[in-house]
């Protein structure tokens, strides 16, 4: 069963064709990676799937239902969650409150009980806070619960975003470069975290430049170049695909120390 299916998706910005005629599917319970050089259109694909941008053509299906024209928050309600390449934490709230926003959809109730802080609301808030703390522990950032993002290290913010995304109990989680800017140990921790998320039954679509992480963790890989699909398959297949090697991986990537193709 496919959690996500994308058909003929295209999007142009002025003259730039960021995504062209892209079709792929993500099977339930897998970790699916999206790789490609800078500017290939990976983030744009995420934005199209999550409803931040509207596509110029094509359709998106979540769990078999079409969501192409749905507003972003409605998609979230259907079980889609994501993180952002350039951190989008809520700087005006504590870390715990950030995660609570992730729980938002399960908490929202009528205006009056919220204004009056009704006992029912208080009960649910207590539970929500406990759950948010649990999620922070899961992501390894529980000690920052009452901190504001400005005082948290970069790596912790990346995990906080993941905790916030997982909080909505999504069916499909989109992770945009979760390891970018992290050192070796931090990257390994993120690797573990993604595995834990995958093991809990959440389907993951991952964009990442760290090839070692991608090859280790992915069930399937989709290679994007210039907005087009260049190849698709298991890590072993992609590694062998001559077209992919020529366009993107390069000979170096095949060596044992092929780690980082990050071009920054």
């Amino acid at each position: 069963m496919n959690v996500l299916e994308v058909r003929g998706l295209s999007r142009a910005f002025g003259g730039v064709h960021a995504v062209r005629e892209l079709s792929f599917a993500v099977a339930e319970g897998t970790v699916h990676s999206l790789i490609g050089p800078n500017g290939a259109g990976k983030t744009t694909v995420f934005n199209l799937i999550s409803g931040i941008y509207a596509p110029s053509a094509g359709q998106v299906y979540l769990g078999g239902a079409e969501i192409t024209d749905l507003a972003a928050h409605r998609r979230a309600a259907l079980g889609l969650a994501r993180t952002f390449q350039n951190l989008q934490v809520f700087a005006n709230m504590t870390a715990l409150e950030n995660v609570l926003v992730g729980l938002h959809m399960r908490l929202d109730m009528g205006l009056l009980p919220q204004l009056l802080r009704s006992p029912a609301l208080r009960g649910r808030e207590r539970e929500a806070r406990a759950e948010a703390r649990e999620l922070m522990r899961f992501a390894g950032v529980e000690r920052y619960a009452d901190a504001f993002p400005a005082s948290m290290p970069f790596g912790a913010l990346k995990r906080l975003e993941i905790a916030r995304a997982v909080a909505s109990r999504p069916r499909l989680l989109l992770l945009d470069e979760p390891a970018a800017g992290l050192n070796q140990t931090e990257t390994e921790d993120i690797d573990l975290l993604i595995r834990k998320i995958g093991d809990s039954g959440v389907t993951v679509l991952l964009v990442e430049h760290d090839m070692r992480l991608v090859m280790k963790i992915s069930d399937r890989i989709l290679v994007l170049d210039n907005g087009r699909k260049l190849g698709e398959g298991t890590p072993a297949e992609v590694r062998r695909d001559p077209q992919v090697i020529a366009a993107y991986l390069g000979a170096a990537a095949l060596g044992p120390k092929a780690g980082d193709i990050h071009a920054e």
Binding site: S50, I52, H73, Q88, F90, V101, H104
Partner: peptide
């Protein structure tokens, strides 16, 4: 919190539902 999230990051707020 939803209101404050709008202030913090509108796209992230939308992505959170």
């Amino acid at each position: 919190r939803g209101l404050r999230a709008v202030h913090g990051s509108e796209v992230a707020a939308r992505a959170c539902g």
